[in-house]
Each structure stands twice: as C-alpha cells, then as structure tokens.
C-alpha cells in the first residue's frame, strides 16, 4: 500500500516489477478510508470492519469490483 505522484508512475512501478496494475485511489478517498477504519481505534469499542461492512465502505467511495471485495476469489491462485 504505497503512495505515488501520478498514474504514469504507478504504471512504471508495475511494469518494471512485472506486476498487474491495480486501481488507484485519490487522497480524498484514502482519507475517508482512514477515518472509517481508524477513527475509533483508540476506543474500547474499536474493531476492524467485517466483510459486509468493508463492501459497503468501498462501494460508498466508488471503489467497485472484485479487487475491493474482501471475499472474492477472483484473484486466487489458478484463476486466469
């Protein structure tokens, strides 16, 4: 989970490592993820979101598709 200065630099990073390009996330979206995940982390009630909550969080930010599905097997070994 890394920062990049531009889409082109993400492309370069993936290409030079022969890794698949994944969806990028804007900083305002990342802030919303950070607040949702960690805003209550220092409280007694804090817990990590479950799979259904994660789907809702990602969908609410426009982060759609199998990549963001915590229970997807689309990227499991052996899948095309």
């Amino acid at each position: 989970m890394l920062f990049f200065r531009s889409e082109e630099l993400i492309d370069d990073w993936c290409r030079t490592r022969d890794l698949p390009r994944r969806p990028s996330v804007r900083m305002d979206q990342l802030w919303q993820l950070a607040v949702t995940w960690y805003g209550t982390r220092l409280t007694a009630e804090s817990r990590r979101p479950g799979p259904q909550e994660m789907r809702g969080i990602f969908e609410g930010l426009g982060l759609l598709g199998d990549f963001w599905d915590p229970q997807s097997d689309a990227f499991a070994p052996g899948k095309p």
Binding site: M1, L2, F3, F4, R5, S6, E7, I10, W13, C14, L19, P20, R22, S24, V25, R26, M27, D28, Q29, L30, W31, Q32, V35, M54, F58, D66, F67, W68, D69, P70, Q71, S72, D73, A74, F75, A76
Partner: peptide, 24 residues
C-alpha cells in the same frame, strides 16, 4: 511527500494510493 492533514482531511493533493494486493 509532505502532506498536511487536519480534521477535514489532507490538503488538496494530486498524489495517489495504489495497493498491489486485492482486499481478499
């Protein structure tokens, strides 16, 4: 990257986040 963050979030920025590993 030097990014200021306050209660409303990060200062406007064109930087991006990229994760190589799918959520699952």
């Amino acid at each position: 990257l030097e990014l200021s963050v306050d209660s409303s979030g990060p200062a406007p920025s064109t930087w991006l986040f990229h994760c190589q590993v799918p959520a699952a």
